[in-house]
Design a protein around this nucleic acid. Structure first.
Lengths: 120, 120
DNA sequence: TCTAATAGTTACCTTTTGGTGGGTAGGGCA
DNA sequence: TGCCCTACCCACCAAAAGGTAACTATTAGA
């Protein structure tokens, strides 16, 4: 296998939490274990496909754990792994900085809304 | 203009520092003001086009300041704005977490290299 | 006159990412 | 029997992101 090369640490981090959905998913899982359908409700803009695809990738990176309950209809829960918890502080700061950024842009006259500010 | 809507703070943050290049550029500017050519040397994989495009976008978000010296050949310097400095802590953590992640994957047997670990 | 030097733009193409709509499994229940 | 439920998979298409290469301007200096 050809050796994977990074030039700076942040490159690796962004490969894991980057993209349109991963950081959002992780911000939700930071507070609680959630079922697939709960995540879908918490992130109404995401499609089924993207949700499971991103969860699979986070699982492969050992950030998210998948718990399958053997029952019908199926029940699957996702939560942060211990290693995933090491991202918790960063995720929180990303949320808070974004909230401030939105306030700032609103104060500057931009038409902008933040629906929930529940990241505590 | 249609109101821009976010569901969670991190969405706004990622819109600003997301993508393949922005966080890398910002990590370099965190330590020092840099000329265009210095940035290009510090990030050898980036193309001219991407470098200026990303810098423009960071400038529009008031994260990066552009200083043009009226001389020939041209000299242009980039640095974090005061507001951009508010990302400094997060950028540092993203770097450090990535370095740890690379160590972890290397320890797990993955063929992986980190060229510089100079984010202090 | 010709070239080097720096920063930047543009047109064009490829790759990656994301969206849509369909389909699966398998037990519960009317 | 036939339909519901949840999770999830696949084929296909559209849009966004990124890469390549050629071009610009300007002036110092060989």
């Amino acid at each position: 296998m050809p050796t994977k090369t990074y030039h700076i640490g942040v490159e690796a981090t962004m490969e894991i939490i980057g993209g349109k959905w991963k950081s959002i998913i992780l911000c939700h899982l930071r507070h609680q274990t959630m079922r697939t359908s709960e995540l879908a409700r918490a992130i109404p803009q995401i499609s089924q496909k993207m949700l499971t695809q991103q969860l699979r990738e986070l699982e492969n990176a050992d950030i998210v754990a998948r718990h399958v309950y053997k029952q019908v209809p199926p029940k699957v829960e996702y939560s942060l792994t211990d290693y995933g918890e090491s991202l918790s502080g960063i995720l929180h700061e990303l949320c808070v900085w974004g909230e401030d950024n939105i306030d700032r842009r609103e104060a500057a006259g931009e038409e902008i809304t933040l629906l929930s500010r529940d990241d505590v």
